[in-house]
Amino acid sequence: MKNFLIFVTFLIITLSNISKVYSIEADVFVQSTVNRASEALNNKFSKKEKIEKLKQIASETVDIRGIGFYTLGVYRKNISNDQLKQYEKLFEQYFLKSFSSRLAEYSNPEIEVISKKKLNQNYTMVSSILVSTEQRPEVKVDWRIYTKNLENPKIRDLIIEGLSLARTQKEEFSSIIQSNDGDINALFAALIEFIKE
Protein backbone atom coordinates (compact mmCIF):
# COMPACT_ATOMS: atom_id res chain seq x y z
CA MET A 1 0.00 0.00 0.00
CA LYS A 2 2.82 2.33 0.99
CA ASN A 3 4.62 1.58 -2.27
CA PHE A 4 1.43 2.21 -4.20
CA LEU A 5 0.99 5.66 -2.54
CA ILE A 6 4.61 6.56 -3.30
CA PHE A 7 4.05 5.48 -6.91
CA VAL A 8 0.86 7.58 -7.24
CA THR A 9 2.58 10.62 -5.66
CA PHE A 10 5.53 10.19 -8.02
CA LEU A 11 3.14 9.92 -10.98
CA ILE A 12 1.26 13.09 -10.00
CA ILE A 13 4.49 15.07 -9.57
CA THR A 14 5.84 13.80 -12.89
CA LEU A 15 2.63 14.62 -14.76
CA SER A 16 2.36 18.08 -13.23
CA ASN A 17 5.94 18.76 -14.27
CA ILE A 18 5.22 17.55 -17.79
CA SER A 19 2.32 19.99 -18.07
CA LYS A 20 4.57 22.79 -16.78
CA VAL A 21 7.25 21.93 -19.32
CA TYR A 22 4.81 22.22 -22.23
CA SER A 23 2.71 25.18 -21.04
CA ILE A 24 3.44 28.44 -22.84
CA GLU A 25 3.29 31.76 -21.02
CA ALA A 26 0.87 34.20 -22.69
CA ASP A 27 3.41 37.03 -22.99
CA VAL A 28 6.04 34.73 -24.49
CA PHE A 29 3.42 33.43 -26.93
CA VAL A 30 2.50 37.00 -28.00
CA GLN A 31 6.12 38.05 -28.45
CA SER A 32 6.89 34.97 -30.49
CA THR A 33 3.78 35.51 -32.66
CA VAL A 34 4.72 39.15 -33.19
CA ASN A 35 8.25 38.16 -34.17
CA ARG A 36 6.87 35.69 -36.71
CA ALA A 37 4.52 38.34 -38.14
CA SER A 38 7.34 40.86 -38.24
CA GLU A 39 9.47 38.45 -40.23
CA ALA A 40 6.57 37.80 -42.62
CA LEU A 41 6.18 41.55 -43.19
CA ASN A 42 9.79 41.97 -44.18
CA ASN A 43 10.05 43.92 -47.40
CA LYS A 44 12.01 41.15 -49.11
CA PHE A 45 8.63 39.43 -49.68
CA SER A 46 6.02 40.47 -52.23
CA LYS A 47 2.59 41.55 -50.96
CA LYS A 48 1.11 38.23 -52.07
CA GLU A 49 3.79 36.29 -50.19
CA LYS A 50 3.25 38.44 -47.11
CA ILE A 51 -0.48 37.71 -47.17
CA GLU A 52 0.10 33.96 -47.50
CA LYS A 53 2.57 33.94 -44.60
CA LEU A 54 0.22 36.02 -42.41
CA LYS A 55 -2.66 33.67 -43.16
CA GLN A 56 -0.51 30.74 -42.06
CA ILE A 57 0.46 32.47 -38.81
CA ALA A 58 -3.16 33.46 -38.09
CA SER A 59 -4.38 29.89 -38.67
CA GLU A 60 -1.93 28.63 -36.08
CA THR A 61 -2.17 31.34 -33.42
CA VAL A 62 -5.67 32.86 -33.61
CA ASP A 63 -8.81 31.15 -32.33
CA ILE A 64 -10.77 31.93 -35.48
CA ARG A 65 -13.62 29.60 -34.57
CA GLY A 66 -13.97 31.20 -31.12
CA ILE A 67 -13.90 34.74 -32.51
CA GLY A 68 -16.50 33.71 -35.09
CA PHE A 69 -18.84 32.47 -32.35
CA TYR A 70 -18.32 35.64 -30.28
CA THR A 71 -18.87 37.84 -33.31
CA LEU A 72 -22.19 36.19 -34.09
CA GLY A 73 -23.45 37.20 -30.62
CA VAL A 74 -27.01 36.25 -29.73
CA TYR A 75 -27.73 35.03 -33.25
CA ARG A 76 -25.46 32.03 -32.58
CA LYS A 77 -28.20 30.45 -30.48
CA ASN A 78 -30.99 31.03 -32.98
CA ILE A 79 -29.59 29.43 -36.12
CA SER A 80 -29.59 25.79 -37.26
CA ASN A 81 -26.54 23.53 -37.12
CA ASP A 82 -26.22 23.65 -40.89
CA GLN A 83 -26.26 27.45 -40.86
CA LEU A 84 -23.69 27.45 -38.06
CA LYS A 85 -21.40 25.18 -40.09
CA GLN A 86 -21.83 27.40 -43.15
CA TYR A 87 -21.07 30.44 -41.00
CA GLU A 88 -17.91 28.88 -39.53
CA LYS A 89 -16.62 28.16 -43.02
CA LEU A 90 -17.42 31.62 -44.35
CA PHE A 91 -16.11 33.38 -41.25
CA GLU A 92 -12.75 31.62 -41.46
CA GLN A 93 -12.26 32.75 -45.08
CA TYR A 94 -13.48 36.26 -44.26
CA PHE A 95 -11.26 36.54 -41.20
CA LEU A 96 -8.08 35.34 -42.89
CA LYS A 97 -8.60 37.68 -45.82
CA SER A 98 -9.48 40.69 -43.68
CA PHE A 99 -6.74 40.03 -41.09
CA SER A 100 -3.92 39.47 -43.57
CA SER A 101 -4.94 42.37 -45.78
CA ARG A 102 -5.05 44.73 -42.78
CA LEU A 103 -1.61 43.72 -41.58
CA ALA A 104 0.06 43.48 -44.98
CA GLU A 105 -0.02 47.28 -45.21
CA TYR A 106 2.54 47.55 -42.42
CA SER A 107 6.24 47.03 -42.97
CA ASN A 108 8.42 45.74 -40.15
CA PRO A 109 6.17 46.79 -37.26
CA GLU A 110 8.05 46.79 -33.98
CA ILE A 111 5.99 45.56 -31.03
CA GLU A 112 7.27 45.40 -27.46
CA VAL A 113 5.44 43.25 -24.94
CA ILE A 114 5.17 45.17 -21.67
CA SER A 115 3.16 43.13 -19.15
CA LYS A 116 0.47 40.53 -18.66
CA LYS A 117 -2.56 40.20 -16.41
CA LYS A 118 -4.37 36.95 -15.74
CA LEU A 119 -8.12 37.66 -15.79
CA ASN A 120 -9.18 34.10 -14.91
CA GLN A 121 -8.40 30.49 -15.79
CA ASN A 122 -9.40 31.05 -19.42
CA TYR A 123 -8.03 34.49 -20.22
CA THR A 124 -4.85 36.52 -19.87
CA MET A 125 -4.49 40.06 -21.18
CA VAL A 126 -1.06 40.86 -22.59
CA SER A 127 -0.17 44.55 -22.95
CA SER A 128 2.19 45.71 -25.66
CA ILE A 129 3.25 48.82 -27.53
CA LEU A 130 3.56 49.33 -31.26
CA VAL A 131 6.64 51.52 -31.36
CA SER A 132 6.13 54.96 -32.94
CA THR A 133 7.47 55.88 -36.37
CA GLU A 134 7.84 59.12 -38.30
CA GLN A 135 4.31 58.68 -39.66
CA ARG A 136 2.39 57.70 -36.51
CA PRO A 137 2.62 57.94 -32.72
CA GLU A 138 3.06 55.01 -30.33
CA VAL A 139 0.03 52.70 -30.23
CA LYS A 140 -1.09 50.61 -27.25
CA VAL A 141 -2.14 47.10 -28.21
CA ASP A 142 -3.66 44.65 -25.71
CA TRP A 143 -4.10 40.99 -26.60
CA ARG A 144 -6.83 38.77 -25.19
CA ILE A 145 -5.26 35.34 -24.96
CA TYR A 146 -7.42 32.25 -24.48
CA THR A 147 -5.43 30.12 -22.04
CA LYS A 148 -7.81 27.25 -21.33
CA ASN A 149 -5.35 24.91 -23.01
CA LEU A 150 -2.02 26.10 -21.62
CA GLU A 151 -0.05 24.11 -24.16
CA ASN A 152 -1.85 25.79 -27.02
CA PRO A 153 -2.82 29.40 -26.17
CA LYS A 154 -4.75 31.32 -28.82
CA ILE A 155 -5.41 34.98 -29.60
CA ARG A 156 -9.07 35.93 -29.29
CA ASP A 157 -9.04 39.72 -29.52
CA LEU A 158 -6.83 42.73 -30.14
CA ILE A 159 -7.67 45.90 -28.21
CA ILE A 160 -6.00 48.82 -29.98
CA GLU A 161 -5.90 52.03 -27.91
CA GLY A 162 -8.82 50.65 -25.95
CA LEU A 163 -10.90 49.71 -29.01
CA SER A 164 -11.75 46.05 -29.34
CA LEU A 165 -11.53 44.63 -32.86
CA ALA A 166 -13.75 41.66 -31.98
CA ARG A 167 -16.44 43.90 -30.51
CA THR A 168 -16.33 46.18 -33.56
CA GLN A 169 -16.77 43.19 -35.82
CA LYS A 170 -19.58 41.83 -33.64
CA GLU A 171 -21.47 45.13 -33.85
CA GLU A 172 -20.83 45.31 -37.59
CA PHE A 173 -22.33 41.84 -38.12
CA SER A 174 -25.22 42.60 -35.81
CA SER A 175 -25.97 45.79 -37.75
CA ILE A 176 -26.13 43.87 -41.04
CA ILE A 177 -28.48 41.25 -39.59
CA GLN A 178 -30.71 43.87 -37.93
CA SER A 179 -30.91 45.99 -41.07
CA ASN A 180 -32.25 42.91 -42.85
CA ASP A 181 -34.99 42.07 -40.35
CA GLY A 182 -32.90 39.50 -38.49
CA ASP A 183 -32.10 37.45 -41.61
CA ILE A 184 -28.76 35.68 -41.09
CA ASN A 185 -28.55 35.01 -44.85
CA ALA A 186 -27.92 38.74 -45.39
CA LEU A 187 -24.73 38.37 -43.34
CA PHE A 188 -23.73 35.28 -45.32
CA ALA A 189 -24.25 37.21 -48.57
CA ALA A 190 -22.11 40.12 -47.30
CA LEU A 191 -19.35 37.71 -46.23
CA ILE A 192 -19.41 35.91 -49.59
CA GLU A 193 -19.19 39.24 -51.41
CA PHE A 194 -16.21 40.31 -49.29
CA ILE A 195 -14.41 36.99 -49.83
CA LYS A 196 -14.94 37.22 -53.63
CA GLU A 197 -13.65 40.78 -53.97
Binding site: Y70, R156, D157, I159
Partner: peptide, 20 residues
Protein backbone atom coordinates in the same frame (compact mmCIF):
# COMPACT_ATOMS: atom_id res chain seq x y z
CA UNK B 1 -10.57 57.72 -18.36
CA UNK B 2 -9.11 54.26 -18.87
CA UNK B 3 -7.31 52.68 -21.77
CA UNK B 4 -9.72 49.88 -22.58
CA UNK B 5 -12.86 50.08 -20.49
CA UNK B 6 -13.43 47.38 -17.87
CA UNK B 7 -16.54 46.41 -19.77
CA UNK B 8 -14.40 45.43 -22.77
CA UNK B 9 -11.74 43.69 -20.69
CA UNK B 10 -14.25 41.76 -18.56
CA UNK B 11 -16.74 41.17 -21.39
CA UNK B 12 -18.73 38.20 -20.05
CA UNK B 13 -19.76 37.13 -23.56
CA UNK B 14 -16.31 35.62 -24.02
CA UNK B 15 -16.82 33.21 -21.11
CA UNK B 16 -19.41 31.11 -22.88
CA UNK B 17 -17.36 30.65 -26.06
CA UNK B 18 -15.97 27.12 -26.19
CA UNK B 19 -13.89 26.28 -29.21
CA UNK B 20 -11.19 23.90 -28.07
Amino acid sequence: NKNGSLEIIYDGNWEEIESQ
